[in-house]
Design a protein around this nucleic acid. Structure first.
Lengths: 145, 145
DNA sequence: TTCGCTGCAAAATGTTTGCATAGCC
DNA sequence: GGCTATGCAAACATTTTGCAGCGAA
């Protein structure tokens, strides 16, 4: 688990300056269990900074992604960010459609998948979407496709 | 397998008018084995139509998607379209990174995935990316990730 | 003091919409 | 001929870039 301090330290060790904004970003992602859209990050940050600009948020998200602090995932609704998985073992995720929280799945379907010899596998994606314990209560019978 | 005729017929049966452009679209997707980006479709269409506009291509792609003729998938590089899978059985895909061609995977990882009782699964995504037989030859040692 | 970070503005990109006209049925 | 589809232009959303000034180290 990345703590606030670890994130700040990682940024500092790479020569980045630790501004108030980046502190807030570090804190936000350290405390957020799931994926955050850039807009959500911007709105959260906006509470603390009046003159905040969207582009700086973008810039910092990208910088943090390049540092390996954050990871970016493309959803149907757009791009989102979360703390980079600390687990080094290959794994997948269950993702809550409500809160964006993720849970690891250790099982990898590639073990069972029959791939023809003439298909050269480069990567794969396995994601399970649904509602986590907390959110399932709020969304009693949400049908979705 | 959707043929050109089936696509045209489906559009006509829904009250859509069969214009030259839509005929060309139907033919393009009937003959294309894999995913096509809107831009690729536009460029292909542009060969035949001088005054072609991007928005009409978009509109028609969306109309065809709403009809169930096409399906839309979000990739990292953006949105792409292909013929809607005719197979009714639940399945997944191997997708060639070069030509976009897809191959069905009948195995579904959800069978093996341990999901906690308190997580309400809504949907899942399983995709294998790589190079198909034809493209693997052209891309001898493409490291990616 | 230095050099990176920020906000502003504008550009680049991808997608959608309104409207008059052309064209399918 | 009626009504839909098209092209044009412009709106819109998202992301990137240039630049002058502020601020962390």
């Amino acid at each position: 688990m990345h703590t606030y301090e670890e994130i700040v330290q990682k940024m500092a060790s790479q020569g980045l300056r630790i501004t108030d904004q980046r502190k807030t970003l570090a804190k936000l992602f350290a405390e957020s269990p799931g994926y955050l859209a850039p807009k959500a990050v911007y709105e959260y940050m906006g509470k603390s900074y009046t003159g905040l600009s969207f582009d700086t948020v973008y810039r910092n998200l990208r910088v943090m992604e390049e540092l390996g602090v954050l990871e970016q995932v493309v959803f149907e609704e757009g791009v989102k960010f979360k703390l980079h998985c600390r687990e080094h073992d290959h794994h997948h995720h269950m993702i809550c459609l409500q809160c964006g929280r993720t849970y690891p799945i250790t099982y990898c379907p590639m073990e069972q998948t029959l791939v023809p010899d003439d298909f050269k596998v480069v990567k794969h994606k396995f994601e399970v979407f649904g509602y986590c314990k907390d959110c399932a209560q709020d969304e009693p019978a949400l049908g979705e496709g």
